[in-house]
Design a protein around this nucleic acid. Structure first.
Length: 265
DNA sequence: GCCCAGGTATAAA
DNA sequence: TTTATACATGGG
């Protein structure tokens, strides 16, 4: 059991559209990363993680991005635009998670032309059908496991036309056609190009994968929602104006605008 | 029934 | 290079 200062907000971070597997019950959030199940909850001004010191240091500290100074980032972003300050102040407890690259890739392929509740459902079915039963939940199936399947095998998860894209991504990862390690540091335009060699990965999914799977925080995923948000809320700005932390700005804007759809009326 | 959802591949202009 | 359309599925 690990007790840390509450320097981020669980609900804001785990249910803001960046990850799809966390579930909440009686204040306890549960999910699984790399075959490790974690239960985590807020207790007054602390956050309690049900894990060993070793796992905390090796996995969760990095996953929850606990060493980054988000207060400083919020101040810098807030100085750029009053609307961006509003968005950051709406959910100041958001952290950008460092998710598993394969899970992020697969998840955001599933996200295309889809809605968040259904994305969660498809991913849950993917894990239940092809992941490992860990008691509390299921692990996310490995790329190697999925690469051995056919489109028909994936029928139970009801992913529709995305099934073939899931398979092409799994094959690319399982066969090392994509160099995962290099994507952490490779120039962004090259990294995008490499990801987009996968069938079903376009510019939006590529930026989501780089932001959420590789913590490339200058990436700014531009889906239809964010395009509308930028046009409506930031007519004077483009994503590049938000600098090296544009991806964090994007997450503030995405969550803020989705929770306040009247902004678009 | 119709419309839409954290897009992309494909064909055609 | 830019623009139009199909795509599977389920909720509103």
């Amino acid at each position: 059991m690990i007790l840390i200062e509450k320097n981020f907000d669980l609900a804001q971070t785990l249910d803001c559209g960046q990850a799809f597997r966390w579930t909440e019950k009686d204040g306890v959030w549960t999910a699984c990363v790399k075959s490790k199940v974690l239960k985590i909850k807020e207790v007054e001004d602390k956050i309690k993680l049900d894990c060993s010191q070793e796992d905390f240091e090796n996995i969760w500290e990095n996953y929850f991005d606990l060493k980054t100074d988000y207060q400083k980032i919020r101040e810098e972003l807030s100085a750029l635009s009053p609307v961006l300050k509003q968005a950051a102040d709406f959910a100041p407890g958001i952290h950008i998670l460092s998710q598993d690259p394969w899970e992020a890739l697969c998840s955001f392929i599933i996200s295309q032309n889809n809605n968040i509740p259904r994305i969660k459902g498809i991913i849950a079915k993917l894990c239940e059908n092809f992941g490992e039963n860990l008691g509390e939940t299921y692990s996310f199936p490995t790329a190697e496991t999925i690469a051995k399947l056919s489109v028909d095998d994936l029928a139970p998860i009801k992913s529709g036309f995305r099934a073939k894209y899931i398979l092409s991504a799994a094959t690319a990862i399982a066969n090392n056609e994509i160099n995962i390690e290099k994507l952490y540091t490779m120039p962004l335009d090259e990294a995008r190009k490499e990801l987009m060699t996968i069938k079903g990965v376009g510019p939006k999914v590529a930026d989501c994968v780089l932001l959420y799977g590789f913590h490339r925080t200058s990436c700014f995923p531009l889906d239809v929602w964010m395009k509308r948000a930028m046009e409506t809320l930031f007519p004077e700005n483009s994503p590049e104006d938000f600098g090296e932390n544009a991806g964090i700005a994007q997450q503030y804007i995405f969550h803020y605008s989705r929770m306040n759809p009247k902004l678009f009326e």
